Amino acid sequence: MSDIDIISQYREQFVTHLEGRIQLGEPKNLYEPVQYILGLGGKRLRPILTLMTAEVFGGKAKEAMDAALAVEMFHNFSLVHDDIMDDAPLRRGKTTVHEKWDISTGILSGDAMLILSYQFFESYPGDMYVELTKLYSKTAIEVCEGQQYDVDFETRDDVTIPEYLKMIEYKTSVLVAAAMKMGAIVAKASQKDAEAIYEFGRNLGIAFQLQDDYLDAFGDPKTFGKQVGGDIMENKKTYLYLKSLENASKDDQDGLLHLYSIKPEDSTAKVEAVKTIFKESGAVEETKKAIQDFTQKAFDALAETGLHEKNKALLQQFGEGLMERTV
């Protein structure tokens, strides 16, 4: 069976579990948005990783379902609130919760999702419950910190590469890492293995986000899910941008700072000019190297686990598949 078949199976099992556990309660205006955002699909990457990790460590996917659901519920809660902060009209091609209902409903339904996510851990026995919720709380606060860094960076001109990496680690990759570690905890893996699989997820998450930065500028418009050049239009200080500022000639640095201070009606010329600086400064090559480095760190962490070689290969293939994407 191929990786894709296995992932599809996990996804189907998870969605069935989700639909069975998420009941529409009263008042409808609190719970309908919860069902709506969870029903918009998405890759379900994090819960799939929880189920997959539980099984590679000798546990059962069925036993990891509620932990996977907590992770997916938290992820979607954060999207509802992020969309309000960004005033975003669309999520996964559909109207965002606060646009479909209103901002108050978006805030309140998001709050309810955060609380519901904690309730899913209540199906686990005492010690495991404590371990899962401790990891979950630590991760949840880091995601909030990452989001705040991201907001702060919008108005700062002195963001450093280490700060940017910390932001994407907290905002994106710690939840991927926690999703995997939860699978290991449910499977009663050793502490050493649980920590190594966390490091695998954390480094893979950073590589994934750096690749997202790269594809946003240089992806194929036919296959990339978002508008190519969107980050440049929004003046987002990505890894490509920060590396360009570090490496470019004085003229190009000044040009880049100017281009990132404007938002023209037609962004085509701006996007092309910025991409040229990204290439000429060597930032493109350095970004690709950083993606490779973090992917390698992830595989090194995987090698530290006591997993059977077949299971290591499965997770390595999953990681490679993730990094070879064009979307």
Results as ranks from 00 to 15, higher is better:
274 V>I: 14
257 L>M: 14
224 F>K: 02
9 Q>M: 05
123 S>V: 14
103 I>W: 01
19 E>N: 15
242 L>E: 12
201 G>N: 07
241 Y>Q: 02
17 H>E: 00
47 P>L: 11
83 D>Q: 10
182 M>F: 12
270 K>N: 09
87 D>F: 00
244 S>I: 06
137 S>N: 13
189 A>T: 02
239 Y>W: 07
44 R>F: 12
325 R>A: 09
97 V>W: 06
177 A>L: 06
87 D>C: 02
26 E>W: 00
31 Y>W: 14
33 P>R: 10
71 V>C: 08
30 L>M: 13
215 L>I: 11
20 G>E: 13
13 Q>T: 09
281 S>D: 02
181 K>G: 00
220 D>N: 15
137 S>T: 15
319 G>H: 08
289 K>I: 01
52 M>Y: 00
5 D>I: 10
12 E>I: 09
254 D>H: 10
152 D>T: 01
51 L>T: 06
18 L>V: 02
321 G>V: 00
154 E>C: 06
76 N>M: 14
46 R>Q: 09
178 A>R: 03
94 K>R: 13
271 V>G: 08
136 Y>H: 02
229 G>A: 07
32 E>V: 03
237 K>M: 11
273 A>I: 01
99 E>Y: 06
124 Y>S: 04
229 G>H: 06
88 A>D: 14
177 A>Y: 08
28 K>F: 11
